[in-house]
Computed example of a mutant assay.
Amino acid sequence: MALRFSEICIDAHDPTTLGAWWASALGWHSETDADGDVRLSPPPGSGPPWLFLAVPEGKTVKNRLHLDFTPDDQQAEVDRLIGLGATPVDIGQGEQSWVVLADPEGNEFCILAPD
């Protein structure tokens, strides 16, 4: 039996707002279905779509899974994302080459130093 990676599902208190934030951050197209779920479609070859699903509760603990992004210019990307509404997060990482940020609902992700 073979598995195919189909999509990344992200629970959200407000999938419309969070999906729009990530669409802006990534530059991806978004669509909202009749159920209120928001799907982000990446450019071809850029990975699976992201699906934001409504849940009643907010995030309360550190993510068990997070996303890493490698930009051409780490500081410029960190500044851009903070300008869009991301917040710097200290999860005990100490002094590292990556920067931990959180999206508007508190989901942590990392901006790595360029290769």
Rank of each mutant, 00 (worst) to 15 (best):
M1L: 05
A2C: 02
R4D: 00
S6L: 07
I8V: 11
I8P: 00
I8D: 00
C9H: 07
C9S: 09
D11V: 00
D11I: 01
A12L: 04
H13Q: 14
T16S: 09
T17Q: 14
L18C: 03
L18F: 04
L18Y: 04
G19N: 14
A20V: 03
A20K: 12
W22Y: 13
W22N: 01
W22T: 04
A23F: 08
S24Q: 15
S24F: 02
A25L: 04
A25M: 10
G27Q: 01
H29S: 06
S30C: 05
T32K: 07
D33A: 03
A34R: 07
G36T: 03
R39A: 06
R39L: 09
S41I: 11
P42C: 04
P43Q: 09
G45I: 15
G45D: 13
P49R: 05
A54Y: 13
P56A: 11
E57K: 14
K59N: 01
T60G: 06
T60F: 06
T60N: 04
V61L: 06
V61K: 14
R64T: 02
L65M: 04
L67P: 00
D68H: 14
D68P: 00
P71Y: 10
P71I: 00
D73N: 10
Q74R: 15
V78L: 09
D79C: 12
R80L: 01
R80S: 00
R80P: 01
L84C: 07
L84V: 00
A86K: 02
T87M: 13
D90I: 07
G92T: 09
G92K: 11
G92M: 10
E95N: 14
Q96N: 03
S97C: 08
W98T: 08
W98S: 10
W98V: 07
V99A: 10
V100D: 10
A102T: 11
P104N: 12
P104C: 11
E105Y: 04
E105T: 11
G106S: 03
N107V: 09
E108P: 01
I111W: 12
I111S: 03
L112Q: 15
D115G: 10
